[in-house]
Simulated scan of single mutants.
Amino acid sequence: MKNKPLNVIVRFELKDGELDTLISLIRDFFEKEVSRFPGFISAKIHQNEVGTVLINYASWESAEHFQRFVRELASLSPIAQQIQAFRPTQDMVFEIPL
């Protein structure tokens, strides 16, 4: 059976003044580190109108690629550690074809 692409949704509930800092950290992390990692497809950042919720949506070729990323990069990266300070919650979901 072929591996299914994995979408990882990370949600942040933010306090006043945190939004711009977090966006900058996430952009740096994806541009400098994540984009070069095998199996990474794409990422998007979304915010609510008032800037209190930020959603980071990333697509991976498979759950195995994402798990390798977590083990080999995300758990060791100083930028990722700074992002963790913003108390993210995470969901992993697979797309269901129509």
Rank of each mutant, 00 (worst) to 15 (best):
F69W: 10
R36W: 09
S62L: 10
N48T: 14
R11I: 07
L73E: 05
R36S: 12
L54I: 04
A80R: 02
R87P: 02
V93F: 04
N56Q: 12
F94C: 12
I96D: 04
I83S: 01
E61Q: 14
I26Y: 03
L22H: 01
F86N: 00
E33A: 04
S35W: 11
A63R: 12
F40T: 07
I55E: 06
N48K: 04
S42D: 15
F86V: 07
V10E: 00
H46I: 13
I23S: 04
L76P: 01
L19Q: 08
I83T: 01
L25E: 08
T52D: 10
R36Y: 13
F66P: 01
L73T: 01
E13V: 08
V8E: 02
T21H: 09
A80P: 01
P38R: 11
R71Y: 11
S59P: 13
M92G: 06
D28C: 09
F86S: 02
D28K: 05
E72Y: 04
S59N: 12
L25Y: 00
R11N: 08
T21R: 09
R11F: 10
L98T: 07
F12T: 01
V93K: 08
F29K: 11
H65C: 15
S42M: 11
Q90R: 09
L76H: 12
T21D: 13
I83K: 00
A58E: 03
I79H: 02
L76G: 14
E18A: 03
A43I: 04
I26A: 07
P88I: 03
K32I: 01
L76M: 12
K44I: 02
D16K: 08
E31C: 10
V50N: 08
E18G: 00
R27K: 06
Q47H: 14
Q84V: 10
M1Q: 12
A80E: 00
F66G: 00
S75P: 12
F12W: 03
Q81V: 05
T89K: 06
S42W: 13
R68G: 00
S75T: 02
N56Y: 14
G51S: 14
T89G: 10
A74D: 02
Q90H: 09
S75M: 03
T89Q: 15
I26D: 04
I96T: 09
N48E: 06
V53D: 07
V93W: 02
I45E: 04
L54Y: 01
K32T: 04
I23A: 13
F86H: 02
E49H: 14
F12D: 01
M92I: 07
D28P: 00
Q82P: 00
P5G: 08
R87I: 01
D91C: 06
E61T: 05
L98N: 12
P5S: 06
I26F: 06
N48S: 06
G51K: 00
Q81S: 03
A63H: 11
I41M: 12
F37W: 05
E72N: 11
V50P: 05
F30H: 12
Q82D: 02
A85M: 04
Q47M: 15
D16M: 14
T52L: 10
E13R: 08
N7S: 10
E33R: 06
K44V: 06
K4M: 09
Q84M: 13
E13P: 14
E95R: 05
A74G: 01
P5R: 08
K32Y: 08
F86K: 03
